[in-house]
Write a protein that binds this DNA or RNA. Structure first.
Length: 594
RNA sequence: GUACCUGUAGCUCAAUUGGAUAGAGCAUUAGUUUGCGGAACUAAAGGUUGUCGGUUCGAUUCCGACCAGGUACGCCA
């Protein structure tokens, strides 16, 4: 429709013998329905060139527009805007397609045939899965789904740090903790999965405490040795040393088992969140590849410096100098990241590669991209790094997994679910066997929506009580609308046989508002997907939900004739289809009842 | 110190990328129900968009300076 309006304007300008500006005609959806469905500022932009009053020019353009039955009004107004109002017939016809075609009509095959790899979540085994991971997961899953709904073929990728200092700190902590508790590793193995993972987390904190805060030199030395040993296990090119003291206590076995526990635990979380990854990459698998290419290019791109290998970023481009191979000959995060990029290319050969992380890493990623553009320009060209803000607590402290003080994803979920259950218990009588499933879905909606409604990039101040409240602009509010609309259809039927175009229902302002909002879904969805911003879609769905609730409160289906009701049922069907599609694209589950 | 990000109502966030009277939610206040699901609806009140200047028909948006906060800056990830 936007393009049609653009064409119409262009025709009018030709008739008026006015050159159209280089940038073309801008047509936008209006934010306020009193100003029509679309508007253009073309008259104001041309006024200075044409040296006339914008309002007069707007009038001349409007008068030169060809007649079009799909608009009921085209007006020119105050400073010089031209507003387009869609006709009732057009709007209702659109709603009928929403109702009857649903998902088929929402699919917009703009990205058809395009392969996109999207990397997100990136949780590290041996470290806590905190609410930051929950956030990245929500963003990544939503962006993935939106790209898919545009027709792209998406590979969901996650990259997990199973080697590195955090691992050796944990393994060091494991030995200490076992001694302290007077237990054997086999005692730990008997615990539940959650307990085992939590136990490993406490070992990490112990190791990190010694390494980073107490800075006890013996512990530091041991942890560094363990680190080398674990790297050695997966990197055959590293020089062998005397590992007998680690072999005696079987660190390899403990590491292997612990790693698997964490992965199994993560998998449980992903399944609750509704993410299914296609590819899992591990630092242990990419480090060899990274080391190889960095070594090969040392002297050219990289530089030896005090026993390590570094990359000197150009200051003018605002790039930092970073260490790629440390003085022990081990690859750092940087080198592994390069290895990862190459490995991804080898396996996936995607047209576009998106990486989603917190924005603490953005200056680091600039360096990586710079290095990559020298090593392999093609990969660098198609790789995009999106960064989102961090989750902050209200007292403005950053969460650190080293010192505790982090909120785990699991804790947030169970607390939210508890609150959901307390609200559910004082309302309707739902079948008990459904309560658990439904409360899961509502909790997920509350959490994900709280994260997704904020523009990606700015920090989220995480106020627990607000995040899990269900009033107003929240996930459960939108789910509630779905459940309400669903119960109307259950009560009165689907209205399938109805020809909606017979209706004159738009005279009612509540209906008009609902229908106009409804008709904007495809545009909102496209906008949200193309700008990779789920928040746009959140706002749209909330707006739609408000329109629906107002409609619901003011239009009573039970008090009208069969024919009139039929028209409304088509509209309600359309609302259901949009909510279903929209929530799906956010990665938020729907519920039939709640 | 250097670079990047942020600053909008009491709080949490929007604002279609330079457009119309800066919009929502929460909290506050006043209403709505013998009624299809009240996790609801209708209103009111709340603003010098951090400050000062500049660019133009028009600035929350662009430019400059300053103020405040955050993040990153060679062997963590």
């Amino acid at each position: 429709m936007k393009n049609r309006i653009k064409e119409k304007i262009k025709e009018a300008l030709i008739m008026l013998q006015i050159d159209l500006p280089e940038e073309g005609v801008f047509v936008e959806e209006t934010k306020d329905i009193s100003k029509g469905d679309f508007s253009t500022n073309i008259a104001m932009r041309l006024a200075s060139v044409e040296k006339t009053d914008p309002l007069i020019l707007a009038e001349r353009i409007v008068k030169s527009l060809k007649k079009d039955k799909d608009f009921k009004l085209i007006e020119f107004v105050k400073p010089g805007f031209i507003n387009f109002f869609l006709s009732d017939t057009y709007l209702l016809g659109e709603i009928e397609k929403y109702a009857k075609l649903g998902a088929d009509y929402f699919a917009q095959n703009i990205q058809k045939g395009r392969n996109i790899a999207i990397e997100f979540t990136d949780a590290n085994p041996f470290k806590i899965f905190h609410i930051g991971h929950l956030y990245t997961n929500a963003v990544g899953e939503s962006i993935s789904r939106m790209q898919e709904s545009l027709g792209a073929s998406v590979k969901r990728v996650t990259y997990q740090g199973d080697v590195g200092l955090h691992v050796s700190k944990t393994m060091w902590g494991v030995e200490e903790q076992l001694k302290k508790e007077g237990k054997n590793f086999s005692d730990i193995e008997k615990l539940d999965l959650e307990e085992r993972v939590a136990w490993l987390g406490s070992c990490y904190i112990l190791g990190a405490e010694m390494y980073d805060y107490s800075k006890e030199s013996k512990a530091i030395e041991e942890i560094n040795e363990i680190n080398y040993y674990i790297y050695y296990l997966t990197n055959p090119s590293l020089e062998k040393k005397d590992f007998s003291k680690f072999e005696e206590v079987n660190i390899k076995e403990k590491y292997t088992k612990g790693r698997l526990w964490c992965l199994e635990y993560f998998e449980k979380i992903y399944s609750v969140l509704g993410t299914k990854f296609d590819n899992y990459f591990f630092e242990s698998e990419v480090s060899e590849m990274g080391l190889e290419i960095v070594k090969k290019n040392t002297g050219e791109i990289f530089k030896k410096d005090a026993g390590s290998v570094i990359y000197e970023g150009e200051k003018e481009k605002g790039l930092h100098t970073r260490v790629f191979i440390n003085k022990y000959g081990l690859p750092t995060y940087e080198t592994k990241e390069i290895g990862l990029a190459l490995k991804k290319e080898e396996l996936l050969r995607s047209d576009e590669s998106i990486i989603i992380t917190a924005n603490e890493q953005s200056s680091y990623f600039k360096v990586i991209m710079d290095v990559l553009s020298k090593l392999n320009p093609e990969i660098a060209y198609k790789t995009k790094h999106f960064s989102h803000g961090v989750i902050r607590l209200p007292n403005a402290q950053k969460m650190s997994s080293r010192r505790g003080g982090v909120i785990s994803g699991e804790w947030l979920f169970s607390e939210t679910k508890r609150k959901v259950l307390s609200i559910m218990s004082n309302s309707d009588e739902l079948e008990p066997e459904l309560v658990d499933e439904i409360s899961d879905k509502i909790a997920i909606a509350a959490i994900k929506y709280a994260f997704l409604k904020v523009t990606i990039g700015s920090d989220i101040v995480f106020d627990f009580d607000k995040a899990i409240s269900f009033d107003g602009d929240t996930g459960p509010y939108i789910q509630y609308v779905y459940a309400r609309a669903n119960s109307l259809i259950k009560e009165f039927g689907t209205g399938d046989s109805q020809n909606i175009c017979l209706g004159s229902c738009l005279a009612n302002p509540f209906v008009e508002r609902l229908v106009r909002t409804l008709s904007k879904y495809r545009v909102a969805m496209l906008d949200s997907a193309l700008t990779y911003s789920p928040s746009t879609l959140c706002q749209y769905l909330f707006d739609l939900s408000q329109s629906f609730n107002a409609f619901y409160q003011n239009v009573r289906l039970s008090e009208m004739s069969e024919d009139d009701r039929g028209v409304y049922l088509v509209i309600i069907r359309a609302v259901l289809n949009v909510l279903q599609s929209g929530l799906f694209n956010l990665g938020i589950p729907i519920v039939e009842k709640m």
